[in-house]
Design a protein around this nucleic acid. Structure first.
Length: 465
RNA sequence: GGCGCCGUAGCAAAGUGGUAAUGCAGUGGACUGCAACUCCGCGAUCGUCGGUUCGAUUCCGACCGGCGCCUCCA
């Protein structure tokens, strides 16, 4: 059984063949930490976390790196507005990012490299690019322009391969004004000068800071090697970010392949609209987490294929929550049935994931497995439960205690479990006395507080809704 | 101007050259003191129009509609 992945470079699904089966390498572009992250940042984290889980099943050693960009103009601007040091700001938001990602049940990557901890490596790469004739330092005597080092895209034979665009086809300055010191409009910054009041590091070209794309190339080279198996990120990064990473790395390594598989997740929209500053419709992960369990967000993200566009909305989140309720209620009904270890490599869900990470199908299998578990008798229950939980673990779902899933607070009333149990006892007494009106009154009372009662032979169970 | 994506039941979302998984919602029934949970059952011919084919939702073309990117937004 083999893994197939869609490669943006070839625009087709390809059989995944690692460079070294004993050490599979994956790099995913992480956040620039100047604010809390929005739900759009969560998607690649969840998608590639799922791929990471799958790869770990297939290979003994998977090196998964996801960076933290902690030097950037947006960070500098926000830090200066708040009157604090960039490292204070970036540390705070990096921590917040880790919290948010953990809430979505993402595993921690193997390596979390920080841009500011790799300045020497970046400077070294720039020097090599200049030496090889792929980059040039601006030296035109104009104040403010000196100290820039630019990558010369025309020096690279196949520049534009990933995004499938030719230099001539691009509208120069379509969105950003072309700086006068560029030899060519498409050239991009490797190093730029910092003013005295700006953060900066000494370099052969003066005090300055790295350009946006450089960190990823330098950190990949250091931690994963010159050629890696998988490189992922959001679709918007295809151009220019990943295109330029390729340019830097390939040229620094004399044309050696950079990443064999390029994977890009689609965008998340909010109620049909792109998240944007002008619309003011950014949905921050931590805000959503106040209304929904992280697992609901994860379920929503995995319920659509990673390459398609996804529209986040209240209906979708509520629907996902109810779906998880159904799954957890099956698990709850199993009580303390022990889950046995089951090999799931022959399951439809596993096959679906091997097919370019088809998580929607895997989730549909989750529902089928839950029903099978529900129908199972005797010893078959343990196996069915084991199968369900093993598949769910690959998706990072259903790992919580089912009892807690239903009884932990859900943002409704704050009635305590003890109070609820008291009312249930009161209702049971009423039922024993055939005082059904009284019993129903208690049910209604609890219902009004978001607590639903479920009677069964074993007694009364409750859950918050 | 260039590159690319999408249009499947009320909503969400897979998928296949031979009449379409799954979830949520809805609905009929069983169960229940009443409910809830659960169980059994019910719903779409796949944007439009052509073409290829014995046969297309699936391949090709056109059109309509929605959308992304083109130098620092996941």
């Amino acid at each position: 059984m083999s893994l197939t992945l869609y490669n943006t470079m070839s625009r087709s699904k390809e059989l995944f063949q690692p460079i070294d089966e004993q050490r599979v390498t994956m790099y995913v572009c992480g956040p620039t930490v100047y604010n809390r992250v929005h739900i759009g940042n969560a998607r690649p984290a969840v998608v590639f976390d799922t791929l990471y889980r799958l790869l770990q099943k297939l290979y003994p050693n998977v090196q998964y790196a996801r960076n933290i960009t902690d030097i950037d103009d947006k960070i500098m601007q926000t830090a200066s507005e708040l009157g604090e040091d960039i490292s204070t700001l970036s540390t705070r938001y990096a921590e917040a990012y880790f919290d948010d990602m953990a809430a979505l049940n993402n595993l921690s990557p193997t390596i979390i490299p920080y841009a500011t901890q790799h300045i020497p490596e970046m400077i070294d790469m720039v020097s090599r690019l200049i030496d090889k004739g792929h980059a040039y330092a601006v030296d035109n005597g104009v104040t403010g322009e000196q100290g820039h080092v630019l990558f010369a895209v025309q020096s690279m034979e196949h520049y534009g391969q990933l995004s499938q665009r030719l230099l001539d086809d691009m509208l120069p300055g379509a969105r950003v004004e072309v700086a006068s010191y560029k030899h060519y409009a498409g050239d991009f910054v490797l190093w730029k000068p910092s003013a005295n009041n700006e953060p900066g590091w000494d370099s052969p070209w003066g005090r300055g800071r790295p350009g946006w794309h450089l960190e990823c190339s330098a950190m990949i080279e250091k931690h994963l090697g010159e050629s890696i198996d998988i490189h992922g990120g959001g679709q918007d990064l295809i151009f220019p970010h990943h295109e330029n990473e390729i340019a830097q790395s390939c040229c620094a390594h004399d044309g050696k392949p950079f990443a064999n598989v390029w994977m890009h997740n689609g965008f998340i929209n909010i109620e049909g609209e792109k998240m944007s500053k002008s619309l003011g419709n950014f949905r921050m992960v931590n805000d959503l987490l106040e209304q929904y369990p992280g697992e609901v967000l994860r379920y929503v993200i995995l319920s659509a294929h990673y390459r398609s566009e996804q529209n986040f909305g209240k209906d979708l989140l509520d629907s996902a929550w109810r779906s998880l309720d159904t799954l957890y209620s099956f698990l709850r009904a199993q009580g303390d049935v022990t889950a046995t270890d089951v090999d799931i490599t022959d399951s439809d869900a596993y096959r679906a994931l091997l097919d370019d990470l088809n998580t929607p199908v895997a989730i549909s299998e989750l529902h089928k497995l839950a029903r099978e578990m529900n129908a199972a008798q005797g010893g078959a229950r343990s196996e069915a439960k084991g199968r369900l939980l093993a598949v769910a673990e690959l998706l990072g779902l259903l790992q919580q205690d089912a009892e807690q899933w239903f009884t932990l607070a859900r943002g409704g009333s704050d009635i305590s479990a003890e109070q609820i149990e008291m009312l249930i006892a009161k209702r049971n007494q009423a039922k024993a006395d055939k005082d059904y009106a009284g019993a129903d009154a208690v049910r209604e009372e609890l219902k009004a507080m978001g607590v639903v009662l479920e009677d069964s032979r074993e007694g009364t169970q409750w859950r918050r809704e």
